[in-house]
């Protein structure tokens, strides 16, 4: 009887700790995951799906990573899922060249606009976001992780399996490209 209650106490404690860890991770990284997915997939609906999938995977793999290395694990999972989505999209486009993807992307982005977006700052934000989305996939991922998600060179190299020097070169290229894109948008 005493053993049973002890086991249930330990079980409850473990569950509570797992829940706390999960909730903490979700609170901490959900926006980062969503932002990365959004810039990579250029589409809010797909970003929703990827974020949801990442959160579920976090829950399923709670015991497979430590809290300190969680960020790398989460962003790596996000990156891999985004790549899967992009590959799938590419195949769909090959099958059906008149896909509604671009229209959908346009409408979803337009839907997110509200009157406040009409201010100059918001217009600038939108322009920058559009320019970032136009960057090539590989340098876009590095740029978003570094400049928007605020990750360090070492973390990015871990997440994307790239040497640190390549990360630095990609960031530099992305900055140059972004500058050119913004000049074209002016």
């Amino acid at each position: 009887m005493c053993n049973k209650s002890a086991v249930s106490f330990v079980y409850n404690l473990e569950t509570m700790l797992t829940n706390t860890k999960y909730n903490f991770l979700v609170q901490q990284y959900r926006n980062g995951v969503y932002t990365y997915s959004f810039y990579m997939l250029k589409n809010r609906m797909d970003a929703d799906d990827v974020t949801q999938e990442v959160l579920i995977r976090i829950w399923k793999n709670m015991n497979k990573f430590k809290l300190l290395s969680a960020k790398s694990w989460i962003m790596k999972t996000t990156h891999n899922l985004c790549l899967d989505f992009l590959r799938r999209r590419k195949k769909e486009l090959e099958k059906n060249p008149y896909s509604t993807e671009d229209i959908l992307e346009y409408t979803t982005d337009k839907q997110s606009e509200d009157p406040v977006m009409l201010t100059e700052n918001k217009i600038n934000d939108t322009k920058v976001k559009e320019a970032i989305k136009k960057l090539p996939e590989k340098i876009r991922s590095v740029f978003v992780l570094y400049e928007i998600d605020g990750m360090k060179y070492k973390e990015i190299s871990k997440v994307l399996d790239l040497p640190i020097n390549s990360v630095k070169v990609y960031i530099l290229r992305a900055r140059k490209k972004l500058q050119n894109e913004l000049q074209l948008l002016r």
């Binding site: 926006n31 995951v33 932002t35 970003a47 949801q52 934000d125 400049e147 998600d149």
Partner: peptide, 12 residues
């Protein structure tokens, strides 16, 4: 100045 995109509540 770009902020992180807010994750929709529906996803959570």
């Amino acid at each position: 100045d770009l902020d992180l995109e807010e994750c929709p509540k529906e996803v959570i």
